[in-house]
């Protein structure tokens, strides 16, 4: 944890020194279709806190993103990913582990604009490679901005090949993200985000892939923009298990009880 703080603080300290303007996001899990102008560069550190699994589990995912506008309504990003996890050791103590999770490359294209056109649309592709496996993620992005209202919907699918001791282990994820927010004054938006996540994989020792985990998350989101940087925060409790294996109102085997994501954008 201390390492993460040491990692993040210098980035935040940069904020007041840099020029104004940034492509402000209103949500932290849901993406909008906006892309940076050609040659513009933005630094986006993102921290996700995951807690509320049995045994005192606590996880922190740190992603540092460098975004570059390519022009022609395209933007590309490079991410560095790290995770710190703390879990109970079953004897009242805790073990804590930090790991570098790899790098990701993203390409995002904007097809239409949420203000100028009837609906904003975009495509998003992300490839991650790390010590744990490789991951391909595709998203269809839709958004709309009318007056003081912003709405965004993402359809996400992800294929992962995880490196396990017994060989490659395939996983598929399907996710729907929805964000709705209203502007309050010039600098702040307030809203809600919903996330529906499904995990499809083979159970240990089997080859047949099936829906093992499915859950709905929902919670409030706030975003603010100053002249120099922007930030967004979502607090997203798990609301319900929607299917898959296991019993109980919530799925705490795969997912956490509470995810909180904090995102900053700093224009370089």
């Amino acid at each position: 944890m201390r390492r993460l703080i040491r990692f993040s603080l210098p980035l935040l300290a940069l904020a007041p020194l840099t020029q104004a303007h940034a492509s402000d996001r209103h949500f932290t899990f849901t993406h909008e279709t906006d892309v940076l102008s050609k040659g513009d560069v933005e630094l986006e550190p993102s921290t996700t806190f995951r807690l509320g699994k049995p045994g005192g589990y606590f996880g922190v995912d740190e992603r540092i993103e460098f975004e570059v506008g390519l022009g022609h309504r395209l933007q590309t990003s490079l991410y560095l990913n790290a995770t710190t996890e703390r879990a109970g050791d079953g004897q009242g103590g805790f073990t804590s582990e930090s790991a570098f999770e790899g790098v990701s490359w993203e390409l995002k294209g904007k097809l239409s604009d949420p203000v100028a056109d009837a609906i904003g649309a975009g495509l998003y592709l992300e490839i991650t490679a790390g010590p744990g496996g490789v991951e391909f993620e595709g998203k269809v992005l839709l958004d709309k901005s009318i007056g003081n209202f912003v709405g965004a919907l993402n359809l996400v699918s992800e294929a992962e090949l995880a490196f396990h001791d017994e060989g490659l282990h395939p996983e598929a994820k399907v996710e729907v993200d929805l964000g709705l927010a209203g502007r309050i004054g010039k600098y702040v938006t307030l809203g809600v985000e919903l996330r529906q996540h499904n995990l499809i994989e083979a159970e240990d020792g089997e080859t047949q892939m099936k829906l093992l985990h499915s859950a709905l998350f929902a919670g409030p989101t706030v975003a603010w923009r100053s002249d120099r940087w922007w930030g967004a925060l979502t607090v997203m409790p798990q609301v319900a298990r929607l299917g898959g294996e296991g019993t109980g109102v919530l799925d705490l085997e795969e997912y956490e009880n509470l995810s909180t994501r904090l995102l900053f954008g700093v224009h370089l």
């Binding site: 303007h21 940034a22 492509s23 402000d24 906006d34 892309v35 940076l36 102008s37 513009d40 506008g69 309504r73 604009d113 949420p114 203000v115 100028a116 901005s145 912003v150 923009r225 224009h267």
Partner: peptide, 12 residues
């Protein structure tokens, strides 16, 4: 050109 140059930092 308005849509291409002016949506990079804030919604139009």
């Amino acid at each position: 050109e308005y849509v291409d140059h002016c949506a990079g930092c804030h919604t139009l």
